[in-house]
Structures are given as C-alpha cells and as structure tokens.
Simulated scan of single mutants.
Amino acid sequence: MDPIRHLTASTFLFTRFGTSWRMCVIEHPRQGGHLAPRGHVREAQGERPQNAAVRAALEESGYLPRLLPAPLPEGYPHPGVPGPWWTVDIPVAPDGRVDALHVHTDHVFVGVVPLPYEPQGPSELPVRWVDPADLEVLDAPSESKVLGAHLFDVIGAAARQSAPAGPDGELEAELLRRMELDQEVRLTLPASRTPKSLKRWQQVDRDNRVWLEQLLSERGWPGISEVGERAAAAVWLIAQHSDAAPDFQVSCRDLLAEAVLAGEADPRHGALLQDRVRVAQDRPQVFGTQLRTDEEGELAPAPIWDPEQVDRRRLEVGLEPLAEYLEACRRTVGA
C-alpha cells in the first residue's frame, strides 16, 4: 500500500552580507531545530510548487525570494527557468495533518535575497542567517546540512542572472567623465558657491541622472567586469546623487543590490545607497553612512536602526567603524 503523500516546497534562501554568503533558516516550533522555509502545496487551490515555495518563504521568513534556475551544463544554448533543483521524498512522523507515518514529496528550490536588511513582511518564525561554519554545528536535519553545504559551493555562480559582460572601454570612459563632472561641482568651496554654480550643480546631476536612466533601461546595471572598478563606482555615484528622483533612486538601489549579489559591485556602495534611500524615506538607516548637522552644529549620523550593532554591519560590507568615519568627515568639513 502506497504511503500517504503530500506535496511540499522548500526554499534554500541565500544572501550576501558584504562578500560573505549566508543561508536563511527558521526555527521550527513543532519539529524543533532549524530548517529551510517550507510549506505544503495547496493542491486543492491549484497552487504550483514554485508559488508555494515563494509563499512559504515570505510567510515564515519575511523575505520574498528570487528563485534561481538549476545550473545547466556549460555550453547549453538556452536560458534556464526557475524551478525545483531537486524533488525528494521525506518520511514524516504523525503530525497535525496526518495521524500516521506519511511522506512529503518535497520540491527543493534555491533563491536569493538581494537586500537582507529589507524584509518584505513580518516573519512567522524566528529567522537566522548562517554561514558554512554555523551550518556544520546547527541543530538541523542532516539532509538540510548536506544540501546547504553543497549550495554554499555553487551559489555564487548560480546567483548571476547572466554571464558577465565583456569590457566596454567607451562606456567606461563616459562614466569616468561624468564622475569627474559630479565631483567638480561638489568640490567647490562653500564660500565660492554662487547662484550660477549651484544651478550648474543641479544641471550636472539632472543630466547624469537622465543619461543613467536611459543606460539602465537599455542594458542594465554596468558591472565591474564590464567597466572596471572606478567606472562601476561612477554608476553608484550618479545613483547616489539622484535625490531629485526618489523612485529612480529606489530602482537603482535594487539593481545595485543584484550586482553586489553577482560580485559585480562593491558592497560598500550598496550600503551607502541603501542608507541614502532609507533616510529619504524617513526610515532609520542601516550602516550609519548618512550624516546631518546636530543641534550643536556637529556632523552626526541620521537615526540608525539597531545602533548597537552598526559597527558589525559596517565591518560586513568593508566600512570602517562609525567613530572613525565620523572623525574623518568632521576633519574634512573643518579643513
């Protein structure tokens, strides 16, 4: 007699904290220990396993994943489609749904989250992001540890949405030219600024933004492999200074976060733009990079979420401690 069988979907969810990959696990209240987010497929409602995987991940962890296609052999000419990487049968003890031994036919998906400090909703269960060392000693089923360890080895390549672009010297030169203009109008000493120079500043920012909007719509975010590190920094800088177009700035934050996932952008730039967007939205910043003048006339950070942990987060993305950053900025302003 065939066992009772339920379809389930689980998602091994990954993100980058700076340059380090981590995997999301939830603390399961009934089964105990830590698991990848998992839920039953609502077959009676016509739900597909990939929809169940996304729904369960969002409900249990608060994160909306981008599901990845399973790796294809090198040279295969067609793009992969996000789907289960594996389908496995997992024996399950009696539970609240079935009072007998039964089987979960689990569709195992792999997904990524570009912005780990920007969950899309509340989590139903306690969430933890673990690295490979954490995984080894985690209170988790052996199958989760085996798949998780394997995925840590391949997630970097799997997270890329496309193959890295080849070098584009013409685009690199144009980005560097625009970055020079951006810095030229900003480095004018405050005492030397005139209505004419301020108008030129606004015009440079507008021209750069309009140009970048067109570039992104036509070919996506230029990465380090395409334009080099300095010009990749220029892409971020134009987005960072696009405060006059907040919706565009948010879209840049998301594109830059994907580039960081792919190893095509500097995590520090992602942190700076994320803080810029949050402060513009009147939300506490994550990394303490955005400064204001306080009541005493001194530079101080805009409000920070969980300030006790800010230096840990800054270290993750390659930023110096907040006190050192503040001291350097104050010296610059006072020069």
Score class of each variant (00 low, 15 high):
Gly96Lys: 01
Ile90Gln: 12
Ile4Val: 04
Val317Ser: 05
Pro122Phe: 07
Gln214Pro: 01
Ala9Gln: 01
Gly32Pro: 02
Phe248Thr: 05
Pro69Glu: 13
Arg193Gln: 14
Glu229Ala: 07
Val227Met: 03
Arg278Ala: 10
Gln249Gly: 12
Leu35Gln: 02
Leu72Thr: 01
Val54Ala: 14
Pro132Ile: 08
Trp86Asp: 10
Leu261His: 12
Glu229Tyr: 00
Ala231Met: 10
Val41Met: 08
Ala173Met: 01
Leu273Asn: 03
Arg186Thr: 03
Leu138Ala: 08
Thr293Met: 10
Ile26Cys: 11
Pro141Ile: 09
Arg5Gln: 12
Phe14Glu: 02
Val110Tyr: 04
Ser217Leu: 07
Ala231Asp: 13
Trp86Asn: 12
Ser251His: 11
Ala323Arg: 11
Thr289Trp: 12
Pro126Asn: 09
Ala53Arg: 10
Arg48Pro: 04
Arg128Asp: 09
Val88Ser: 14
Asp254Met: 11
Gly288Gln: 07
His107Val: 05
Val54Lys: 08
Ser10Lys: 03
Asp131Glu: 14
Pro284His: 02
Ala52Tyr: 01
Gly121Thr: 11
Thr105Ala: 14
Glu184Arg: 06
Val286Gly: 07
Leu13Thr: 03
Trp211Thr: 06
Glu213His: 00
Pro84Arg: 08
Ala165Tyr: 00
Leu151Gly: 12
Pro246Thr: 09
Tyr63Glu: 09
Ile155Phe: 06
Val333Met: 06
Ile304Trp: 11
Arg5Ile: 08
Val110Thr: 05
Leu181Gly: 15
Val92Thr: 15
Gln249Ala: 14
Leu198Trp: 07
Asp2Cys: 04
Arg209Ala: 06
Leu72Ser: 11
Val250Phe: 10
Trp221Arg: 10
Asp153Glu: 15
Trp211Ala: 03
Gly223Trp: 04
